[in-house]
Design a protein around this nucleic acid. Structure first.
Length: 199
DNA sequence: CCAACGATGGTCT
DNA sequence: GACCATCGTTGGC
């Protein structure tokens, strides 16, 4: 079952937690979301939308459930789900998946067979699923076909135990506890930072 | 195991 | 020209 449109109306940090344990699909590949980060419009120096709308971040100002994809370090794409009230410019970064479907294709794209390295990181999971900037500004609901396009299903891990920590790879906003992940899941990235506080 | 570093290109000042 | 919401490799322990 795809998640309903109003599922994405939760406050952004709540949505970041609610997405954990759900299944992200793209084409023949799928995985369970095990790690996310929230980016807020207010008082968040790391948020791309924080200093106004530009060509790059325009998709962040769309309605919740839209997709925001950007290129980082000239070679990797990062996948976000737009959140918050429309126009606020908030989003949830998808940081890691537990691969469940289309694993041979992921292995070919990632050039590795090590399960933790297929989707364990924001750049890795987009590479494994074949997600590029072409998806920027699309949404999770209007699909070209039943098994095409990007979507999020309800099935996966029920009632996961969630932990939080500071976010990864930032210069500003390090004090905010806006990274969320499923406790003990081996596919979570950045285990160095995994010193969390409970939720 | 882990720290350091370079690749690589779009975006913004 | 500086800055990245990253990752793979390298070289040390």
């Amino acid at each position: 079952m795809p998640l309903p449109r109003d599922f994405f109306d939760l406050p952004t940090p709540e949505l970041a937690k609610a997405l954990l344990g759900r299944t992200l699909t793209f084409g023949p590949c799928a995985g369970i979301i095990v790690e996310t980060e929230a980016y807020l419009f207010r008082d968040d120096p790391a948020c791309h939308a924080g200093r106004g709308r530009t060509a790059r971040n325009a998709a962040m100002f769309g309605p919740p459930g839209d997709v925001y994809v950007y290129l980082i370090y000239g070679m990797y794409h990062c996948l976000n789900i737009v959140a918050g009230p429309k126009g606020e410019g908030e989003a949830v970064l998808i940081r890691a998946l537990q691969p469940t479907e289309g694993i041979p294709l992921m292995e070919a794209r990632r050039k590795t067979q090590k399960p933790e390295n297929l989707c364990g990181g924001p750049g890795r999971l987009t590479q494994a699923l074949g997600i590029t900037g072409a998806l920027n500004g699309t949404d999770l609901f209007d699909r070209p076909g039943p098994e095409l396009g990007i979507g999020i299903r309800r099935d996966g891990i029920d009632g996961p135990e969630i932990q939080s920590s500071c976010r990864i790879g930032l210069s500003g906003g390090k004090d905010l506890q806006l990274r969320f992940f499923i406790s003990g899941n081996r596919f979570v990235s950045g285990k160095k930072v995994g010193h969390p506080m409970d939720d």
